[in-house]
Amino acid sequence: MFQIDLKSRKAIYEQVVDNFKELIIAGVLKPDEKVPSVRDMAKELTINPNTIQKAYRELENRGYFYSVSGLGSFVSVPAEAAGSSHRIKELKELFRSTVNELVFLGCSKEEILKLMEETGLSKGKVDEND
């Protein structure tokens, strides 16, 4: 399904969480689809089952999974997913470092602003408060 990078500094359970989120956002995992059991996932990734369990709990807390007792975990309908604020924070961070690098490499403020205009911004799909 996906691979775990043991060399990454990111905690393994976070990697599992992020990988599942990506699969759900990309539509690879459909709403109400059953996800592999903790055991199967642990065996497939050769990762400690307790770590997988922790990741599943986290996915449930963030609204990506729901569990039915005795049946296992299932993918939630995206509308119910409430974890986007975290992602927004991540993206802002990425944006900040990208802009900093552009400035370092000699991009002028005007160029960067122009770049932003060329993206979704010009379509008016922007939150005024942001």
């Binding site: 055991r39 065996k43 050769t46």
Partner: peptide, 8 residues
């Protein structure tokens, strides 16, 4: 793999 399997 064997260890993880038995823990699971």
């Amino acid at each position: 793999k064997y260890i993880v399997e038995d823990v699971a």
